[in-house]
């Protein structure tokens, strides 16, 4: 057993989150271990983003607890979690060089050489500002920054939504070739077919509740369907 692998890195107990009268997550119990790539799948509004935001302390639970690396989300967990939000989050005025310096300054586990190597493939000049980048390039840059950390937990919220199929391949390749193999990678998505090949486990969320948490291979074997096929069956409208 390595430092993080096979150790529970994300644990939810009776986790509930309400926005006013709307319940986004309801009594979620979940334990995810290191060394796994886990797909957090479910239709829009099923609570995927809420769960990730709770893990990153961007939201606070209405009830229950969530632990990351055995700690309540906060300053300490943020040092070991690499988070990719589902939207543009980098300051528009910053240049690529500014962003690299920013990550290097704040994250001790940031590997600048790794980021620069990947960015070189995109051929973006260092002086280009985030504002001037295309949406696809921005998303790739954000992913590269996230994956260039030697984190214990990677929380990737919809990393392939809104980009073309070629870019999706690039993003998945980037995740696979750069993540710390002892870490937990949690990928939230509703585009299951694209991420299915890389998943070790899947968690199905439906109306804020975990309806399935299983090994991806075992699921395919049991149901005789791909994860995507089974998802379509479970969430059939």
């Amino acid at each position: 057993m390595n430092e993080y692998g096979n150790r529970t890195l994300l644990q939810c107990e009776n986790l509930t989150k309400c926005y006013g009268s709307t319940t986004a997550l309801e009594h979620v119990n979940l334990a995810l271990e290191g060394g796994r790539i886990v797909g957090l799948v479910g239709p829009n509004g099923s609570g995927k983003t809420t769960l990730i935001k709770l893990a990153q302390h961007l939201l606070t639970p209405s009830e229950g607890t969530i632990l990351v690396g055995g700690m309540a989300p906060g300053r300490e967990t943020k040092a070991i979690v690499s988070y990719l939000p589902d939207r543009d989050f980098l300051p528009q005025w910053m240049s690529l060089a500014d962003v690299l310096r920013f990550y290097e300054d704040f994250y001790t586990d940031f590997r600048r050489d790794r980021a620069e190597e990947m960015l070189a493939n995109l051929q973006i000049p260092n002086r280009t500002t985030i504002k001037k980048m295309s949406k696809g390039t921005r998303e790739k840059v954000q992913l590269i920054l996230t994956m260039s950390r030697d984190a214990m937990v990677y929380l990737l919220d919809e990393p392939i939504a809104g980009v073309d199929p070629a870019a999706r391949d690039y993003i998945l390749r980037t995740i696979l070739t750069n993540y710390n193999p002892e870490a937990l990678v949690l990928i939230s998505t509703h585009l299951i077919a694209d991420v299915e090949p890389v998943l070790d486990e899947v968690v199905f969320l439906k109306e804020g509740q975990v309806v399935l948490h299983q090994n991806a291979d075992a699921l395919r074997e049991e149901t005789g369907k791909s994860v995507d096929g089974y998802f379509r069956e479970v969430f059939k409208c």
Partner: peptide, 16 residues
């Protein structure tokens, strides 16, 4: 920077 979309970056920093 804190309550808008940049808040996702700032509140993800290991800072109090």
């Amino acid at each position: 920077n804190l309550l808008g979309t940049e808040g996702y970056l700032m509140f993800s920093l290991p800072a109090g």
